[in-house]
Design a protein around this nucleic acid. Structure first.
Length: 511
RNA sequence: CGGGCUGUGGCUCAGCUUGGUAGAGCGCUGCGUUCGGGACGCAGAGGCCGUGGGUUCAAAUCCCACCAGCCCGACCA
């Protein structure tokens, strides 16, 4: 008995509905995106995975520049005392800080290499979990007058947060990200900046990663340690859990007070600067996988795919091999003259001496948007066999080779659009407006408690704004408020307390 | 940091209860037949059985300690 599709072979096992977390790990491995390293909690990002990150960087970086920001670089190490300057910040990060205490190794009496007792640092350094404090200290020196403002800087770097449980891309002890840090003359300007950068993330995630998001602000309990307000974009991945795709914080004067970022105002008074910070990390790579990948492996949105088109020469007979390879080279050259997403179309020819099936499946697993097969019969007919990764793996369309290069940008756009539409449809299908406590609990309770099936989604429900209610729901269901959406207020009654509520908020289980 | 489990070729694991020459599948290498959707045959390579100690004529196997990893809880982009 059972699922007839169980006999249908998929490239990834288990399939999504069988075991989502394991499926995810297998996709990351099969697509050669990343692998666990010998260092606990840290991953090796392989070229294919790093290529995705590089594309994310390229597009985001252009958007940062376009909004007036410039890149800079600040130290990896932060003096311990700097962390102490903002009370909530300490509380938020102290538990997961890597600490550097020595600056030399030596061989001890037991013959083992270890930190030299004579080389203990007078003040320990922490490896940055985020850079508000060290950047704040620097900005304090740069800022004297309102004329020095705004400061609009971004840095691309690694950070370390010593996590207990790690998962490739989603949560690792070391990860790559960008962190923007700005200082403004007025509160209004800083708030505007916070919102602007959230908009950048929203656009990037939607238009490049093909992922629809809810954007809004965080409740107090989910706020960044030290922030006055945290804004976020939240996506729903295929197990219907929420994942935060980017955050933008309005820090008020908290960090400028802590770091001494003071300036003389237009009317001659001293005032603390208004700061913001915002970030997006390599977690986005994992988000894209969980969003678009299927039971045959990764499915990459064309705009962030390291390779857009892979050409697979089909060479069944020795005497036609040279002609086939020549045709592949010709097509590749032609494709590279075409442009997509502000850059040349990226093409690869798979010349490996392997069976066609194996090569095809390798690229399916890697999620390349377009696969093109060229064999002797195609040379005769003048056609190429084109497969789209967003279509069933066996689907194949023949089209005239002479038209193909010109059609590629349009095909890629179609795939990009299709991935977004699917994701949007999925999210909407699993987003429910809920008006009763019972329905809420039912929505977030798996039928099979022993081995929970994929269930739930986003619930849009009224809430009275109390932290106690949040706490209760989190304890009962592991469900939290993902964001308080922007937009028009819709007065109602809290479904837990019956008290007044100004608007619905988004509830979900989350990563 | 508390509770449970596991360490054996690159990977997944068997062998351990009852000590006696280290195994399988997958992957890898070579040759041949194949090749328009995950091919097959033959021949190979590859392991101080997590580390250290103990018991024994003899330890992957029994005992002790340590180390590492996984799962479950508290924390998190």
């Amino acid at each position: 008995m059972g699922d007839s599709r169980a006999t249908e072979k998929t490239a990834i096992s288990p399939r999504r509905e069988q075991d989502f977390p394991e499926w995810y790990q297998q996709v990351v491995r099969a697509a050669e995106l990343a692998e666990p390293s010998d260092v606990r909690g840290c991953m090796v990002i392989r070229p294919w995975g790093f290529g995705i990150w590089e594309n994310m960087q390229r597009h985001l970086d252009a958007m940062f520049r376009a909004t007036g920001h410039r890149n800079a670089y600040f130290p990896l190490f932060i003096p311990l005392s700097y962390m102490q300057r903002e009370a909530e910040h300490v509380e938020g990060f102290a538990k997961e800080c890597a600490v550097v205490t020595h600056h030399r190794l030596e061989t001890g009496a037991d013959g083992k290499l270890g930190p030299a007792p004579s080389a203990e640092l007078s003040e320990p350094l922490i490896v940055r979990p985020t850079s508000e404090t060290i950047i704040g200290a620097t900005y304090a020196k740069w800022v004297q007058s309102y004329r020095d403002l705004p400061i609009l800087i971004n840095q691309w770097c690694n950070v370390v947060r010593w996590e207990m449980r790690t998962r490739l891309f989603l949560r690792t002890s070391e990860f790559l990200w960008q962190e923007g840090h700005t200082v403004h003359e007025t509160e209004a300007e800083a708030r505007e900046e916070t919102l602007r950068m959230l908009g950048v993330y929203e656009t990037f995630v939607r238009d490049y990663c093909a992922i629809p998001v809810f954007s809004g602000s965080k409740s107090e309990s989910e706020r960044f340690p030290g922030a006055v307000e945290t804004l976020c974009v939240e996506a729903m991945v295929q197990d219907r859990k929420a994942i935060q795709a980017g955050t933008s914080h309005f820090l008020g004067q908290n960090f400028s007070r802590a770091s001494g970022i003071q300036f003389q105002t237009r009317d001659g008074k001293q005032e603390f600067g208004w700061t913001t910070s915002w970030g997006m990390s390599t977690r986005m790579v994992g988000t894209v996988i969980m969003m678009h990948a299927d039971d045959d492996g990764a499915v990459l949105p064309p705009r962030i795919a390291p390779t857009h088109v892979v050409i697979i020469p089909v060479t069944p007979k020795e005497d036609t091999r040279a002609a086939v390879l020549e045709a592949c080279d010709g097509l590749a050259a032609e494709l590279r003259r075409a442009r997509y997403a502000d850059a040349p179309v990226e093409v690869e020819i798979d010349r490996r001496d392997l069976g066609g099936g194996i090569k095809n499946w390798d690229w399916i697993k890697k999620g390349v948007p377009l696969r093109v097969e060229i064999g002797p019969r195609d040379l005769q007919s003048g056609n190429v066999a084109v497969s789209r990764r967003d279509q069933p793996v066996k689907a194949k369309e023949f089209m005239p080779q002479k038209d193909f290069a010109a059609r590629v940008p349009e095909l890629l756009d179609t795939i990009q659009q299709n991935l977004f539409s699917r994701a949007l449809e999925f999210r909407d299908r699993h987003t429910r407006v809920i008006d009763s406590r019972d329905e809420f609990y039912e929505f977030f309770t798996a039928r099979n408690a022993a081995k929970p099936e994929i269930h739930g989604g986003f619930a849009l429900a009224h809430w009275n704004g109390s932290r106690a209610v949040e706490e209760q729901i989190k304890n009962d269901l592991k469900v939290t408020i993902r964001c308080i959406p922007f937009g028009e207020a819709e007065p109602g009654r809290c479904i837990f307390t019956g008290e007044r509520s100004a608007r619905r908020v988004v509830w979900a289980k989350s990563y």
